[in-house]
Nucleic acid binder design. Structure first.
Lengths: 153, 153
DNA sequence: TGGTTGTTGTTCAAACTCGAACGAAACTGT
DNA sequence: ACAGTTTCGTTCGAGTTTGAACAACAACCA
């Protein structure tokens, strides 16, 4: 047990701001996606990540890791997306345990239709408020945190 | 409808890092609080905010706003905390509609016992990774975002 | 080869979250 | 005073999330 160092005023304020801003932002995003595309934020992320993957497909475990969601949570969301025809499940060649989530053409169209409105929110409430210097500093900070929390990548 | 500007590589990477880092951090915090104190992150925030409020009490609506949770979500969590004796409900003097959530002595003790372990996680995976300059820049960025999303305060 | 260990994805129960709808109380303007 | 509007907190139903348990398959090593 290390001696516990408290947060000084500036650290506390920074942490508080981070926490509040990220919650508020997530609420805005959720609301926008739901009303404009009938998607939750995790669902949108699944489509976005798949669209940027080779052959628009990814193993379930890897996809869960990238979205930062539990395995069971991903199973649920992929099922929801599959019901709507935006994603399909394919068996994984070379590993009979594996399942590949594949973005369908319809999923791709839906994503392309949805993305601009989503980006607009991200811009309005975060990106466009920051100078280039602030942006790079924040990015570097976030990457350090990421690095600390997931051993590799 | 404004013409949609996409995110350039740096913006995209920054947004991606922010999103991933905040999710990972929340998972770590949730896990630590659950195992060490049997609290969810929102529950901890409720206790923390109340402890810093005059007379350790706050109106439900104001508390919900600060925790960034829906009114019904707060009702649920306060009920959970009340069952454990960490929080009490009091009628609001001067407004019969109102309800005050009050941190009990036991709630205060539980918070004090829990806080160090929580702060440790926040330090390890965020605060301590940043230089003072990075910290202030990130804080300023987050405050701008906050400002943009909630009209006042 | 055969047995142990690890990984993969799903199912399940429990918990949590949200928005809509609601009754109650406060505010408003006439 | 009083109807109309707003604010307050709760209830409710629906949807989402998680970890634990599980079955199927892979990888390893004697």
């Amino acid at each position: 047990m290390s001696e516990s160092r408290w947060l000084d005023a500036e650290e506390m304020s920074a942490w508080q701001a981070f926490l509040t801003a990220s919650h508020l932002l997530d609420r805005r995003i959720e609301e926008q996606l739901k009303s404009a595309a009938g998607l939750t934020h995790p669902q949108f992320e699944i489509l976005a990540i798949l669209s940027a993957s080779p052959e628009r497909r990814l193993r379930m475990t890897e996809l869960a890791r990238r979205v930062v969601v539990s395995k069971s949570g991903l199973t649920y969301q992929v099922t929801q997306l599959a019901k709507r025809g935006l994603v399909e499940r394919t068996t994984c060649p070379g590993d009979d345990r594996g399942v590949l989530a594949v973005l369908t053409d319809e999923g791709m169209r839906h994503l392309e239709k949805t993305a601009p409105g989503h980006v607009e929110v991200v811009r309005r409430f975060l990106i466009d408020l920051l100078s280039r210097q602030e942006l790079t500093t924040m990015a570097s900070a976030m990457r350090k945190a990421q690095e600390a929390m997931r051993p590799s990548s």
